Simulated assay, not measured.
Amino acid sequence: MTTTTTDLHALEAHAAHNYHPLPVVIAEAEGAWVTDVHGRRYLDALAGYSALNFGHRHPTLIGAAEAQLRRVTLTSRAFHHDQFGPFCSDLARLTGMDAVLPMNTGAEAVETAIKLARRWGYRVKGVPRDQATILVARENFHGRTTTIVGFSTDPDARDDFGPYAPGFRQVPYGDAAAIEAAIDDTTVAVLLEPVQGEAGIRIPPAGYLREVRRITHERGVLFLADEIQSGLGRTGTTFACELEDVVPDVFLLGKALGGGVVPVSAITARRELMDVFTPGSHGSTFGGNPLACAVGRAVIGLLETGEFQARGRELGARLAAGLHALPSDKVAEVRTIGLWAGIELVPGRPARDVCERMLANGVLAKDTHETTVRLAPPLVVTESEVDRLVEVLADAIG
Rank of each mutant, 00 (worst) to 15 (best):
M274P: 05
A294T: 01
S230G: 10
V212N: 06
V247N: 15
I201L: 02
S230N: 13
F308Q: 05
E307D: 11
S281H: 01
L257W: 06
R213Y: 01
G220M: 11
P205R: 02
I228Q: 08
P248G: 12
G287C: 03
D245S: 14
S265N: 06
T235I: 08
T278R: 14
F239E: 11
G306M: 04
G220T: 11
T268H: 10
F308G: 06
L243A: 14
R271S: 14
D226E: 10
G258C: 11
E304K: 15
V261F: 02
A269M: 12
Q309I: 07
V276P: 03
R271D: 15
L243S: 14
G287T: 04
P263A: 01
L257E: 09
G306L: 04
Q309F: 08
P263D: 07
G220C: 02
A298M: 04
E242S: 09
V212M: 07
R210S: 10
R219W: 02
I228W: 00
F239T: 09
A294S: 12
P248H: 09
C293H: 02
P204N: 02
V262L: 07
E211Q: 10
P248W: 05
G296F: 05
G283Y: 01
R297A: 13
G283F: 00
L303Q: 04
G233F: 01
C293E: 00
I215G: 03
P248T: 10
E272K: 14
P248F: 07
L243C: 12
D249K: 05
G287M: 01
V246Q: 12
G288P: 07
G260K: 00
V262M: 04
S284G: 14
A294E: 03
G260N: 06
Q229S: 14
E244Y: 11
F239D: 11
G233D: 10
S284A: 12
G306I: 10
F223Y: 13
D245I: 03
T285I: 14
G236E: 05
I228E: 06
A240C: 15
V247A: 15
Q229E: 13
T268R: 04
I215D: 09
I228H: 02
D249L: 06
L252V: 15
G207Y: 03
T268D: 15
